[in-house]
Amino acid sequence: MNRIYDMFIAGGPVMWPLLALSIFTFTTAFERIWFWSRLLSQESRIVHDVLDAARYNLHEAEKIAQHARFLPIGRFLLAPLQLKRPTPETFRLAMEAAGDKEFVQMRKGDKFLETVVAIAPLLGLLGTVTGLINTFNNLNIGGGASAEQATKAAAGIGEALITTATGMIVAILALLVFRVLVTFQAQQVEYFSEVGSELELIYRQVWYEPSLVKEESEARALPDSTSNYANETFAVEEY
């Protein structure tokens, strides 16, 4: 522990912003791990329950999605189910709007991680450069460098390289976290698209198209009833 502390102090003032970046990186990683673990562990069950209920009762499917609204997949499925007798186009637009909004939340932390990947190595190089400058300034070139001075210079150069190594480590960790998050996000885009298409298909085939057929049948039957009523009225008047 003391050795780590000594190395940190030896790295110079640049180690402090690198420490802050590493803390924020780990904080972002843990927050995103919690977010994705909750989503991935429950979304399959929620999707199955909502789609299964939607084939028989849209209100029941809406209730299930309402209970799962604390997750992105729940809010995504709830958006079109809340509408009152929408057209398939409106149904799809509601899902697309909800999906776009959830994808923005899924990308939370990406910009920060990209910034860490870019800045951490540069901070490490900056610390190395300033460390080397201080090392060479302490050398007595004109009077001839003694063995003791050469040893101190070598130690100073080694200490200056600590910041470069630290900056690269922080950047690598941030890059690994970022790539994992991007992979999860790409998978969710495909999954949301698949689930949305299936829900829209259920709505079209089970609810919307049969209702159109029923309305057309009732509309065709109405003129016949009116005509029969007119004929009966005419017959009574003629009598």
Rank of each mutant, 00 (worst) to 15 (best):
P86D: 04
T226G: 06
W207E: 01
I4L: 14
K63R: 14
F136E: 02
F35T: 04
K111Y: 13
S197M: 04
G124P: 00
R92E: 14
G167R: 00
E60H: 08
N57Y: 04
L222P: 03
L212F: 02
Y191C: 03
M95L: 15
R32Q: 13
S146M: 07
F178P: 00
M15I: 12
T128P: 05
D52Y: 03
I9R: 10
Y56V: 05
V14E: 04
A97E: 15
L19W: 06
R220T: 09
A54T: 01
A120Q: 01
F192W: 10
K101V: 03
P13C: 03
L201R: 09
K111Q: 13
W34S: 10
A221L: 15
V117H: 00
F192Y: 09
M1W: 09
L58R: 13
I33E: 06
N138P: 02
S44T: 10
T28L: 11
K214Q: 15
A155R: 14
V116T: 04
A186Y: 03
G196C: 04
L81S: 05
S211V: 11
L81H: 04
A65H: 00
H67K: 10
L81T: 13
K108P: 01
T87M: 01
E43R: 10
G99C: 07
R92W: 03
N231E: 15
N228F: 10
A98P: 10
I172M: 04
E114H: 12
A155V: 05
I46E: 02
E43H: 12
T226C: 03
T28E: 04
M168V: 08
I133M: 15
F112K: 01
L83H: 01
V117F: 03
E238G: 04
A20N: 11
D6V: 03
L77H: 02
E218N: 14
S37I: 07
V236I: 13
P72V: 13
R107D: 12
F192S: 12
S41E: 13
G156N: 12
I4E: 09
L93N: 11
I33A: 13
R3Y: 10
Q187G: 12
N137G: 08
R69M: 14
V129I: 15
S22T: 08
V236R: 08
R107Q: 09
A10T: 06
L18W: 14
W34D: 05
E96C: 01
L199K: 02
N228L: 14
